[in-house]
Design a protein around this nucleic acid. Structure first.
Length: 887
RNA sequence: GCGGAUGUGGCGGAACUGGUAGACGCGCUAGCCUCAGGAGCUAGUGUCAGCAAUGACGUGAUGGUUCGAAUCCAUUCAUCCGCACCA
């Protein structure tokens, strides 16, 4: 160990050591029951590491080290989410083949990861774009196809009419094509879907198994996304036809108040309208409005048109008009609703606009009288009702059902409809089936062949993988590049051997990420996606860490995939992830000047800006270093190119070292909060590491003389006893903090311990044997507890303390605290008079309640406040405080 | 609009089941050391008053419960996030 702390030298040395000794390489070991799967979301290989990555992976790395030190067999792998659009765009723009671009990016980023010193088992690295991986995407697809869980249907894509090509949502943001600016259209094409809706109920119910380990808000978001709704289907006969309009309602109890049936504008029944020309025109307008208004048209005015059809209410026999309107969505429920304006806000608004009658059929249940303000039946209450009454209540003006409570009626009326053959109880979901078709090159080919004679034929398992061609032409216009590769497209039918063509759609990249962490357990398996035994040892994942932006899609898909794998016998559990942690964003200050065009801002990187503060530390102004002129100080925003507030992790590592960078990132804020990047903060982290390092260096020579076994309690000086207390208390705090991933407070506790050591005013030369023991105990604990945050320097210091062979291989264990020592023997008791703090007394921890009270009342400052007053009572909280109540 | 979360020094943030508010760090102030320092060390740093001892005030706002409230309850304001005509 050198006298000075040279981060780069230490980091290179230990990274080589870890790689050379396979320090983080693990295998399933039935003898080791304590095992732990620590997983972070795999990165997209954009080519550059950003601070968000550093944060994400530092969090997981710290936990992995902690668990290893506690004796767990820890699986901590990494891989690449390497299919997807940017590679294809690079191909379009610069002519680089997606594979070359991707491999180069991975190579570069792997180097950056290694430079951070992350403790991965690199032998398990996987990449989605390699055939040995996506072969199993295809295999899973075939399994789903076999079971009817994969199917084709027509479904809309974004279409650029100028370039004759399919666009992603991103490429068509704002309703215009990203390249040519043409207005984007919707076009229906045949696409592949996975029946995730089959699992809707399970995806909802099984949340119970993970409730404790997942953030409530993620579960809420998933619950909303699935959007389960309980109600009933009701069929309304269309008069003078043999058609029926099926509606979905959660409030069948309000059916006597229905004044109309309202269809979605694109509902097939509008073709039966006698006024179909007008209705079609209306439908066309709605479609156009929906297309142009990219933003979710929240409070778009409700509009509708009477179709001229009449529907028969199966409960009352009443004939009501059939309308079409823009506020009914074809995608939800049945695409048709019964309009009950008296008891639904949207229907109310609609009825008001078109002066439709409003009939009240639910009364408020009052305490005095169940009797309701029952107006004469069938009378219009448009005037009387100012707003819809949406609560449950008691049925009125509802034929034989009048007088029933809503809750009962909802059940009984649905049952009645079933018996009568005009409806049934029903549950609908907002969740749609998962569209996995992408009209793109850079993805796993969907393993299907179209034969002129046999139709859709799955590629036989033995022919997998269907490999992407080496080259293709990337023009960014017209059909998918894959469709232009003749040797890929043209094939023979596996069934009849005749001429056939391959499917040219590739899979959504969410497919890759739905099961990648199972593959980590057995990354080279050529016979199966993975070996069941191996996966059974490691999974489910104990801790998953990633951004909240994946709260719904990725995490829902991977839950679905797991259930499917369970159903085909690959795993034996319902949920893939026991504990989930969603970390916050990394944000930084922004600096800008107004640009030439009004509203245009020119942003400057924080590194190029000087800030001026007043003597309170408030930022008062900022100037650009290059020209010395002022710039405006903007808010903290997510690091991004557009706000030019990004910080390059490489620069930070070069300037401060990986250890200090990682330490700061974990210390600066709780992991789930946004992290405000401030370069000064990283300086503080480096300062702290230097101090600890210097302390270890100063003591290292003397510690060899420290006794092996703890001297008896009496041999320690008061100061040494205090240091030992701090050490054990810190071990307790840090250990607890780790369990809740509270790294910020864990690091703070370690800093406090380091400060305590600084207060220990004994020099190595004059230290007694017991002093040396206490210092060694403190330093060893401190170094081991630092290892999860800054492993390189921890290794270096551990060696400096005389331990050979690296922390893990030498069998070092996370320190264990002694409860006796962690407890204080002297306590400072606060004394309040009438709830206000007036003094403090120091007592032994064993002091009785009476002794505590007496000491409190005897305190001089307290007496000054109680003098001449009557003590009404004293409240004694053992070990904490005394409150004297006086009058 | 609906649902959820959060409001504590100049800043990030601490505070266990109601019990000494502001740990730790940044920033800032003063001093030491230094040719110099964006280095290191020491001390100080919630606000107001005071030379000081000390006192008053203080966890978005208002009210309540309690011997005692950042913490519990009610009302209210603000910010952030998610969903958004879901029948």
């Amino acid at each position: 160990m050198d006298e000075k702390y040279f981060a780069e030298k230490i980091e290179e040395r230990w990274q080589e050591f870890w790689a050379g000794t396979g320090a983080f390489e693990v295998e399933p070991d039935p003898a080791r029951e304590k095992h732990f799967y620590c997983l972070e979301m795999l990165p997209y290989p954009s080519g550059f590491l950003h601070m968000g990555h550093v944060r994400n992976y530092s969090i997981g790395d710290a936990l992995s080290w902690f668990k290893r030190l506690q004796g767990f067999n820890v699986l901590h792998p990494i891989g690449w989410d390497s299919f997807g659009q940017p590679a294809e765009q690079a191909a379009i723009r610069r002519g680089v083949m997606p594979r070359d671009w991707t491999e180069a990016n991975i190579a570069h980023m792997r180097g950056q990861f290694k430079r951070l010193g992350l403790s991965y088992d690199w032998r398990r690295e996987i990449a989605a774009h390699r055939p040995d991986y996506y072969k199993w995407d295809q295999w899973f697809f075939l399994k789903m196809l076999e079971r009817g869980l994969a199917y084709k249907k027509r479904s809309p894509v974004n279409w650029c009419p100028a370039e004759q090509t399919v666009l992603s949502n991103e490429q068509s943001s704002g309703g215009v094509c990203w390249r040519c600016g043409a207005g984007v259209e919707k076009r229906d094409i045949e696409q592949w879907f996975l029946r995730i809706t089959t699992y809707a109920e399970q995806l909802l119910d099984d949340m119970r198994e993970i409730e404790r380990g997942w953030p409530e808000r993620v579960l809420t978001m998933q619950r909303n996304w699935i959007g389960r709704s309980e109600g009933a289907f009701i069929d309304f006969q269309i008069k003078d036809t043999d058609e029926r309009a099926r509606v979905f309602t959660t409030r069948i109890d309000t059916i006597y108040g229905a004044n109309a049936i309202v269809l979605a504008a694109d509902h097939p029944l509008i073709e039966r309208s006698p006024l179909r020309e007008d209705v079609r025109r209306f439908a066309e307008r709605v479609r156009a409005a929906r297309m142009s208004a990219r933003a979710p048209a929240a409070d778009e005015e409700k509009e509708g048109i009477n179709t001229g059809l009449l529907a028969v209410n199966p409960f009352s026999g009443e004939q009501i008009p059939v309308w079409a309107a823009n506020y009914v969505l074809m995608e939800y429920g049945t695409g048709a609703v019964m309009s009950v304006p008296a008891h639904d806000e949207r229907d109310f608004e609609f009825a008001q606009k078109y002066s439709l009658p409003i009939r009240r059929v639910i009364g408020r249940v009052s305490h005095e009288q169940p009797a309701v303000d029952s107006d004469p039946a069938n009378s219009d209450q448009s005037a009387a009702m100012k707003e819809a009454f949406t609560e449950h209540g008691i049925l009125v003006s509802s034929g034989d059902w009048s007088g029933k409570l809503s809750e009962d009626a909802v059940r009984e009326m649905a049952e009645f409809a079933r018996e009568g053959g005009f409806g049934e109880p029903a549950i609908t979901y907002r969740l749609r089936d998962w569209g996995v078709s992408r009209q793109r090159f850079w993805g796993a080919p969907i393993p299907v062949i179209y034969c002129e004679r046999c139709g859709v034929v799955p590629v036989p398992e033995s022919d997998l993988p269907v490999v992407l061609p080496e080259r293709a032409e990337f023009k960014g216009v017209g059909q998918s590049p894959l469709a232009g590769v003749a040797e890929f497209v043209n094939t023979s039918c596996p069934k009849c051997g005749g001429k056939a063509k391959r499917e040219t759609d590739t899979m959504d990249t969410f497919v890759d990420s739905s099961w990648y962490f199972f593959r980590y357990c057995d990354p080279e398996n050529a016979e199966a996606p993975f070996d069941r035994e191996k996966v059974a040892y490691w999974t489910p994942v104990d801790q998953y860490i990633g951004g909240v932006e994946h709260a719904v899609m990725h995490l829902l898909y991977t839950r679905f995939w797991t259930k499917f794998m369970r159903d085909i016998g690959l795993v034996s559990f319902d949920e893939p992830v026991k504990k989930l942690m969603t970390q916050g964003m990394v944000v930084a200050e922004t600096f800008y000047r107004e640009g030439e065009d009004a509203g245009q801002k020119v942003y400057f990187n924080p590194a190029d800006v000087d800030v001026v503060r007043d003597d309170k530390g408030r930022v008062t102004s900022a100037t650009l270093i290059s020209d010395g002129l002022p710039v405006a100080v903007g808010p903290f925003e997510k690091m991004s190119k557009s706000t030019n507030n990004g910080v390059d992790p490489n620069e930070m590592i070069s300037a401060y070292g990986a250890d200090a960078t990682r330490l700061f990132v974990l210390f600066a804020a709780p992991v789930e909060n946004d992290l405000r990047w401030q370069e000064a903060g990283i300086d503080g982290a480096l300062r702290f590491l230097r101090r600890v390092y210097a302390t270890v260096f100063r003591w290292r020579a003397s510690l060899g003389d420290a006794p092996k076994d703890a001297p008896s309690a009496g041999e320690f000086s008061d100061e040494a006893r205090r240091l030992r207390h701090e050490t054990h208390r810190t071990i307790e705090r840090v250990t607890n903090d780790f369990e809740g991933l509270r790294y910020n407070t864990a690091v703070a506790a370690l800093m406090e311990l380091s400060n305590s050591l600084g207060d220990f005013k004994v020099s190595p030369e004059s230290a007694s044997a017991s002093d040396l023991f206490a210092v060694r105990e403190t330093l060893e604990s401190l170094v081991l507890m630092l290892a999860p945050f800054c492993p390189h320097v921890a290794e270096e210091m551990w060696e400096g303390l005389g331990r050979e062979g690296g922390i893990l291989k030498s069998g070092a264990r996370w320190p264990v605290f002694d409860e006796q020592l962690a407890r204080k023997d002297e306590l400072e008791i606060a004394v309040q008079v009438n709830g206000k703090l007036r003094g403090r007394v120091v007592l032994s921890a064993e002091a009785s309640e009476d002794e505590t009270r007496a000491a409190a009342l005897a305190d001089e400052r307290v007496r000054a406040w109680t003098e001449g007053k009557q003590v009404v009572k004293t409240v004694v909280v053992p070990g904490r405080l005394v409150n004297v109540v006086v009058r």
